[in-house]
Design a protein around this nucleic acid. Sequence first.
DNA 1: CTAATTGCAAATTATTTGCAGCCCC
DNA 2: GGGGCTGCAAATAATTTGCAATTAG
Lengths: 169, 169
Amino acid sequence: MRPKRPQAADAGARTRDTLRARGLRLTEPRRIILDVVRATDAHPSAALVYRLVRRRLPGVSLATVYRNLRVLAAQGLLTERPDVAGMRFDGNTTAHDHFTCVVCGRIYDVPPRAGGGVRRALRSTTGFEVLDHRIEFYGRCARCRRGGGSSGNPSPTRRTYARQKPQRD
Amino acid sequence: MRPKRPQAADAGARTRDTLRARGLRLTEPRRIILDVVRATDAHPSAALVYRLVRRRLPGVSLATVYRNLRVLAAQGLLTERPDVAGMRFDGNTTAHDHFTCVVCGRIYDVPPRAGGGVRRALRSTTGFEVLDHRIEFYGRCARCRRGGGSSGNPSPTRRTYARQKPQRD
DNA sequence: CTAATTGCAAATTATTTGCAGCCCC
DNA sequence: GGGGCTGCAAATAATTTGCAATTAG
């Protein structure tokens, strides 16, 4: 397991309270699932979360992982990201954008760019109430610009990135 | 079928050339599929495209629809959008962002906001080569802000929008 | 206690693929 | 005429659900 992010420090107590307020319990599978998602910045798929959780709790079922990822997302304790290859989860709930490398498939967190200004502008021109927004960038990461598509994906010669099948999980 | 967008005027010829250049053919199913996706701004799922195409070509198979949506996306003739409820397709290939109403589930096209400036900034700070970007907004559309969640979705009282199940298709 | 949660297996849903025949260039 | 394309049916893959047993609070 990797070192946790700073925010994860108080996780136990705060998380428990958040859940309890909605009549939800902080069970061991649930706690470990959240912990695992928070401990990585790989934006894991449900399948990968499952594999990682199993290392700590060999008996969990995949269904439990799916159910909890949903519950935790509904409580705002983690975020769901629809992806070409299925749903991915993000334990970093602070404001940030994403950069997907079309060569290696890695998803990088990048600092938030177009701040509230964009949202305000949209609101004033459309009359829509903007509650949230997400920005996804696509391109070649520094690593892949240098060496040819280093680790990870085969086909570096793709023309589209929409269909890029990154290292699933 | 609804009125086409201005860009769709020359579709036939240009599209044929684009495909031919890659050794691909412009068959009737393919042409109609592209036509259908271009004729709507509903960001349809494959299943809806299938239903719409069938009206004009009753014999098509779902597999053909899927295969062609992939091919057309790979050629840049349409865009794929991963969504919580599966892939959606967009025939509008000009620069624009999206606004998803968390009440009725509609996806609106909105004019592009954070232009190239955002991309340039990201490039200079990260060393990443940014080829493309997408912005997704979430909130309540004008219509839903007025009347309670008018047409469309049941549960107007949801707390999260990540799991909003919009009118599938 | 007792409602929330879990594991398991079966069920759904979305999407892809193998293959034989068809058709565009 | 040959390689793309198509329809069909079967195969995968991702995610969900029913249910009886278990457990947190």
